[in-house]
């Protein structure tokens, strides 16, 4: 009986341990092994030393994917924070139909990225897309939203903002509600205006939420896949190749398992490094 009681907790957590060993621990170790090999799964693995690493540092597409992700993040993160914070501030006032508006902003969050991408591909269309129809309607020229290499990644970043911003509105709303109302009342007595209150009280108080939005958006940026996969295939001129799309292409299009694993390892390190740098910055700020 005592023995049973001792074993029982381990029985309960055993599914986790099996899953961890099989789908986390082994893959991490094996991915490092893979980086030293050339392998297409069918023929035997071939040891190639540091070849994959050398190749990686000479791979223009790898650096292009990093650059594209950075472009994505530089546009996506500030846009996301500004729009989400603005709409959250509005929803935090006493307004009518708050639930309806909140529900509307949140709608793209729950819908599959596949749906959003197919839909925006039409909106971005050159000849009959809604955006270009609007532009020509007010007398401007058409824009190659997805066909101009200088614009395509920006277009995807705007679309991703539209899709995710509802979630961040909710997170900011939760953050805004933690700010004690006495702070604002005290500021009112001092005669502070709306902007002063926003920058001196609200912003510092919701710093943790901003940090979370930055981290989640960064991870999202490096996980970008289905958007370029459907819209552009990574083009034009590799201007929308993302980290995951490139791993996917190397792994499941060319069957370069060793090289794809090397890419995965490096992108994982880059993600962790970027997140750590962001953490340092935001913590130092306050």
């Amino acid at each position: 009986m005592i023995n049973r009681k001792k074993i029982l907790p381990y029985l309960l957590v055993s599914p986790y341990i099996v899953h961890f060993l099989l789908f986390v621990a082994f893959p991490v170790v094996f991915s490092i092994v893979l980086t030293f090999h050339k392998w297409n799964i069918i023929s035997p693995m071939e040891y190639t030393g540091f070849n994959n690493y050398i190749r990686l540092f000479n791979d223009k597409t790898f650096f292009k994917a990093i650059g594209n992700t950075l472009i994505f993040l530089i546009i996506h993160i500030p846009l996301q924070i500004i729009v989400a914070l603005f709409l959250a501030e509005i929803l935090n006032q006493k307004i009518k139909l708050r639930g309806v508006f909140r529900g509307a902003f949140f709608l793209p969050v729950i819908v599959s990225g596949v749906v959003v991408t197919i839909l925006w591909q039409q909106l971005f269309g050159f000849d009959t897309g809604l955006f270009n129809r609007l532009l020509t309607g007010i007398g401007f020229g058409k824009i190659g939203w997805l066909t101009d290499p200088n614009i395509a990644m920006t277009s995807i970043a705007v679309m991703a903002t539209w899709k995710n911003v509802g979630l961040y509105i909710i997170l900011f709303l939760v953050g805004l509600q933690t700010v004690p109302t006495q702070y604002y009342e005290a500021a009112d007595l001092e005669g502070a205006n709306h902007w002063q209150k926003f920058f001196k009280i609200t912003l510092p108080m919701i710093n943790p939420t901003i940090f979370m939005v930055v981290i989640l958006s960064t991870i999202g940026g490096f996980s970008l896949f289905i958007e370029p996969y459907i819209m552009t295939g990574g083009g034009p001129l590799n201007s929308t190749v993302s980290a995951v799309l490139y791993i996917y292409k190397q792994g499941f299009f060319y069957y370069h398992m060793g090289y794809a694993a090397t890419l995965g390892l490096f992108f994982a390190f880059i993600i962790l490094a970027v997140v750590m740098i962001q953490k340092k910055f935001i913590e130092k700020d306050h």
């Binding site: 995951v244 792994g251 499941f252 995965g264 390892l265 962790l272």
Partner: peptide
């Protein structure tokens, strides 16, 4: 360990997990 696995980027395990499936 559970907390740690939550911070692990999936990019690193994608290829090996596929090989396990094969």
């Amino acid at each position: 360990v559970i907390i740690f696995t939550m911070t692990l980027p999936f990019q690193i395990t994608l290829i090996p997990q596929y090989i396990i499936m094969v």
